[in-house]
Design a protein around this nucleic acid. Structure first.
Length: 332
DNA sequence: CCACGGGGAATCGGGACCTT
DNA sequence: AAGGTCCCGATTCCCCGTGG
């Protein structure tokens, strides 16, 4: 529940507010033309306390619902899909289970790849050092990627070197041939043939080596290895780790504040909240007493139930929430 | 059209816990 | 210890979809 809590802070004036709460209630009662005879005063106070409790309970429920909403954004589901609270909880559990399986699978794959790389590069001291450093558990994915990248870079370097040497050799041989042709024109054809054979041989060797190297590297990226082990996602979606919503404009995130038992809340918000609660309570009582505004409570409830945006807007402006509509009809 | 069931919200009362 | 707050289960009401 601390998810929506306001940062705790020691506030002395909270005490003061509580002391004056009765005065505020009295003042509001007199404002609302509620007579304060000793009998009715006790009754009124009881009802107001009940209303305050109800209001707090409403807020609590709203905060719970906000939690469900944020949970809903984290689990894979199609837009507009209706999920009951129970479904949200169940799917969340399912999703967490899937993620844990995926994690286990990736860890296994990781150690497998590590072994392969170790076999491939057992002679390279640099790599061995890197692997020794990698014996721990920390960030295996990144190190794995680094190693693969290292290998790839090395391969590219080797290829470039090979190409360079080849071109130099071809250049030299060209020169040789031209010189030869000048010196021994009759031998030209035979030499050319020999050279071609040589080249074919060396090229075949190089290709064979490259293929071997690529074959050894492929398991790291090959889909054949990844695909069969991939567990089925909970829904139709691929298993994608959804980033935490960057403060999506969820109404409850903005509006809901729950007071924790251990946390003393900042003066302004607390007093405003309490005042709001009292005002709500008074208005509710007026609504139930008022003859001209019999449907006021129903309207209020309808607003809260049906329109999340209205709720958030109203609650966002704290005291504005319930003092707008009913005011003109219930207050004299 | 109507009964029925599921789901959500509000309300209430009471117990647990916290603060002073 | 008293009073306040939080939390929870039970209950009620309302809305909505569905099957007869």
């Amino acid at each position: 529940m601390e998810y929506f809590m306001v940062p705790a802070q020691k506030v002395p004036s909270l005490q003061h507010f509580r002391k004056t709460e009765k005065e505020v209630i009295g003042g509001l009662c007199s404002l609302a033309n509620i007579p304060l005879t000793p009998e009715t005063a006790r009754d009124q106070e009881r009802r107001i306390r009940r209303e305050i409790a109800n209001s707090n309970e409403r807020r609590r429920m709203q905060s719970i619902n906000a939690g469900f909403q944020s949970l809903k954004t984290l689990i894979p589901h199609s837009d507009g899909e209706k999920l009951s609270k129970a479904a949200i909880l169940q799917q969340t559990a399912e999703y967490i289970f899937t993620l844990e399986q995926e994690k286990t699978r990736l860890l296994q794959q990781n150690s497998q790849l590590k072994r392969i790389i170790q076999e491939l590069s057992g002679s390279s001291p640099k790599r061995r050092r890197a692997e020794e450093k990698d014996e721990g558990i920390g960030s295996p994915d990144i190190l794995e990627e680094e190693k693969t990248e290292d290998l790839r870079r090395e391969m590219i370097e080797l290829r470039q070197q090979l190409d360079k040497e080849r071109s130099v050799r071809m250049m030299l041989e060209d020169q040789m041939r031209s010189l030869d042709a000048q010196l021994y024109p009759e031998k030209l054809k035979a030499i050319a043939q020999q050279f071609q054979e040589q080249q074919a041989q060396t090229q075949g060797l190089v290709q064979l080596q490259q293929k071997q190297l690529e074959r050894d590297l492929t398991p790291a990226n090959s889909p054949q290895v990844l695909a069969p082990a991939t567990p089925p996602a909970p829904t139709h979606h691929a298993t994608v780790i959804v980033p935490a919503p960057a403060q999506t404009p969820q109404p409850h995130h903005v509006t809901v504040v729950t007071m924790g038992p251990a946390s003393v809340i900042n003066t302004v918000s607390t007093s405003r909240q309490n005042l709001d609660t009292i005002v709500q309570a008074i208005q509710h009582i007026e609504g139930t007493q008022g003859k001209g505004c019999a449907g006021e409570e129903e309207q209020r409830r309808a607003v809260i139930v049906t329109s999340g945006r209205v709720l958030s807007d109203a609650a966002g402006s704290d005291t504005a929430s319930n003092s707008d509509g009913p005011d003109d009809c219930s207050l004299p």
